[in-house]
């Protein structure tokens, strides 16, 4: 008689794993990272470094305090991804303590205090970003215009970026007046408030072929990465498509009704954090709805809310708020989109 070890069905093993999924998402962000650095200088990379270091340290610290295994969690790359997404949302020149505060808040409060990976109702990166938006309004609006397009007399090089990162002062003779600029969304909001028409605003140098200059290309590369993720089946199409439609539909309606007062849909889609939000942030599985139908509702909600906040709200880009608001709606969405089970009446 020969004896055998037990194994419970199914005896085959899954191919996917959390680190693999997160790794693919990080890789998909590479083209956008390169484009971003090309247009806005090396600041993004510095922000990523600060955010990642703080996020990983915070995750390790809280896990140790909570008496949980540290290594498996750090290896799953979820903290790294949150940090990278936060860095993407920040202005290219951000003082390190601002970035660090955002990353620490994202991990400690938005993720770990809710129970860690899988239990956080809010998207950590967006929670961290919103906290910064409220706490450091000045730093969060110091944007750089895309370089090489003649929008600013001078540009911030690595030295300038590092100096600002550590001291929050630009090295002489640079100043915000010479290198800085508002984001296109900001600009549109301000100008519309000054009773300019969209056409007048669009004829300025800030605008590119279909969206905001520079931004449109960064957004293109973000979308490219996102489509790659769909192709690789790391994410599903539902959320990105719903977010974009949720934004495009109201934008088109208002643009058609009053083209002078409302920017065209293409401008909305290719400006700000929309692509990043649609493909990389709203698709964070933990804080999103789970079923196909639920995800369509969830994504559409984000798109519509983004448009509403951009158009009538107090902030130029409403994506982060839209995501957090829809995060709150997830339990309800999940409850009402339970699929019909096989063999139970149609």
């Amino acid at each position: 008689m020969r004896t055998f070890e037990r194994t419970m069905a199914p005896h085959l093993r899954p191919a996917a794993s959390i680190p693999r999924l997160m790794g693919e998402v990080l890789i998909a962000l590479l083209p956008a990272t390169v484009a971003y650095v090309w247009y806005f200088g090396p600041g993004l990379l510095l922000n990523m470094a600060v955010a990642t270091a703080v996020a990983v340290a915070a995750e390790a610290a809280v896990l140790a305090v909570r008496n949980r295994e540290v290594m498996p969690r750090l290896q799953d790359l979820t903290a790294v991804l949150s940090a990278v997404l936060l860095a993407f949302a920040l202005p290219p020149l951000t003082p390190w303590w601002v970035t660090a505060t955002g990353a620490a808040f994202a991990i400690v409060f938005a993720k770990q205090l809710y129970g860690g990976l899988g239990y956080n109702p809010f998207n950590p990166a967006m929670a961290g970003y919103v906290v910064l938006l409220i706490s450091f309004p000045a730093e969060m609006t110091h944007w750089l215009p895309p370089s090489g397009l003649g929008l600013a007399p001078e540009r911030a090089d690595l030295f300038a970026s590092l100096t600002y990162l550590f001291t929050s002062h630009l090295p002489n003779p640079l100043g915000w007046d010479s290198i800085g600029g508002a984001t296109p969304l900001d600009e549109v909001k301000t100008q519309l408030a000054l009773a300019r028409t969209v056409d007048e605003i669009r004829s300025t140098a800030l605008y590119g072929d279909f969206g905001a200059r520079g931004w449109e290309w960064v957004n293109n590369y973000v979308a490219l990465g996102g489509i790659w993720l769909i192709y690789r089946r790391v994410i599903q199409w539902h959320i990105p498509v719903a977010v974009l439609l949720g934004l495009i539909v109201p934008a088109t309606v208002f643009y058609l009704v009053e083209p002078g007062n409302y920017p065209p849909p293409a401008f909305h889609v290719f400006s700000g954090a929309v692509m990043l939000g649609a493909f990389f942030i709203a698709t964070d599985p933990v804080s999103a709805a789970t079923t196909g139908r639920g995800r369509l509702i969830y994504g559409a909600g984000i798109g519509v809310l983004t448009y509403v906040i951009r158009t009538w709200g107090g902030y130029p880009d409403g994506l982060a708020f839209a995501v957090l608001l829809m995060n709150m709606a997830v339990p309800a969405i999940d409850r009402y989109t339970v699929p019909r089970v096989y063999g139970h009446g149609r």
């Binding site: 959390i18 239990y119 933990v286």
Partner: peptide, 8 residues
Amino acid sequence: QPCIRCGE
């Protein structure tokens, strides 16, 4: 690992 609600 904890469920990440991916819906797969």
